[in-house]
Design a protein around this nucleic acid. Structure first.
Length: 325
DNA sequence: AAAACGGTCAACCGCGACCGC
DNA sequence: GGCGGTCGCGGTTGACCGTTT
């Protein structure tokens, strides 16, 4: 048996909203609020619309102080940084951009920013084709080995990644270790409960906002190398330019102790659904200024934490199924 | 001139989460 | 704890419009 529809579809109008409908909805909500029940709202005001449709129209269009179009460079940067860090959590990204709606940002990303970002990358890749053939083959060889032996991710399974997987959320110890390594307010003696009441998720909104802000300040203001040094400052100060997967791989392989607290990252590097490698190449430099060259941590909308790492389109399949190419 | 194509964006859909009973 | 109703989210669709062929 299918799920019951939220409204009787035969009796509701669909498609674009008329000026009259907009005016009706807007004036009612401005005077009376939503009443906490979107489903009942259209009936109250005599609109032949689904409650969800009313909600959407209000949130995305009629609500005061909504901005449309004209995204600034700063907004671009925030969107890209957050997308790289947390993926397509549009509502969370929108929360960082006053006046922007999740729908707007999603559309903007899908139609413009994504192309801007990856188009730039392809352009650069195209100009370095010869060089990349060599690096591709080396990556491919490594991948084959990795897939056969899984030296770093022994339990890696070719299963689709789900953002709802509790892997990070449950890995409290790792998260805490990472937070401690981030330094600043998270000292070794601090209890995470100072920030996360009762050590249980979800964290309160203010803490989450503060964490976000710290994260955004960090990633939006720091040059790549500085970010790396800053966030990993409590670690031995070995420099990695992170110019590609080989460097990152090398870092993991030879410096396990230096990245203690990031254990949960490495698996995700290969499983995260936003992770990808275009045509077998990782050209992180080309992702600048938006790309983050390091694992970054932010709060997720369900109160946990997640990490993002930059890989390019197609990486997942190639890394999982190297023989299928 | 017109058909084909591609980009944009408002709106819809379906699912999981949440909440009250 | 189970259930039904509602909310919120992210993915997808389709109408519209500008550009290209």
């Amino acid at each position: 048996m299918g799920r019951a529809p939220c409204c009787e579809k035969n009796n509701v109008k669909r498609g674009p909203w008329s000026i009259e409908e907009d005016a009706k909805l807007k004036s009612y909500i401005e005077q009376n609020g939503t009443g906490g029940n979107w489903i009942a709202l259209p009936q109250k005001i005599g609109l032949k619309r689904c409650g969800k449709s009313c909600r959407l129209r209000w949130l995305n269009y009629l609500r005061p102080n909504i901005k449309h179009g004209g995204f600034s460079e700063e907004e671009d940067r925030i969107i890209c940084s957050l997308y790289i860090s947390i993926g397509s959590r549009w509502s969370i990204i929108a929360a960082q951009l006053p006046g922007r709606t999740d729908n707007d940002i999603k559309n903007y990303w899908n139609t413009k920013l994504k192309k801007k970002l990856f188009g730039k990358q392809r352009q650069k890749q195209g100009s370095r084709k010869g060089k990349e053939i060599n690096s591709m083959s080396s990556i491919s060889n490594n991948n084959n080995n990795n897939m056969n032996q899984n030296p770093f991710w022994p339990e890696l399974q070719p299963v689709p990644y789900s953002i709802n997987e509790p892997r990070f959320i449950n890995d409290h110890t790792s998260i805490r270790k990472l937070l401690i390594k981030l330094g600043g307010k998270f000292s070794e003696d601090d209890q995470l409960t100072n920030v996360v009441p009762n050590s249980q998720y979800p964290i309160d909104n203010l803490s989450m906002q503060l964490m976000y802000q710290n994260h955004i300040n960090l990633i939006s203001s720091s040059p790549i190398d500085n970010v790396l040094n800053t966030t990993l400052s409590p670690l031995p100060n070995t420099q990695y330019n992170m110019d590609g997967p080989a460097e990152f791989e090398h870092m993991i392989n030879n410096n396990q102790q230096k990245v203690d607290g990031l254990e949960f990252l490495y698996e995700d590097m290969f499983i995260h659904k936003s992770a990808s490698i275009s045509g077998g190449n990782l050209d992180w430099e080309a992702m600048n200024p938006y790309a983050l060259p390091l694992p970054s941590i932010v709060a997720s909308n369900n109160g946990g934490f997640q990490q993002g790492i930059i890989l390019q389109e197609g990486a997942l399949d190639e890394l999982r199924y190297p023989m299928a190419q």
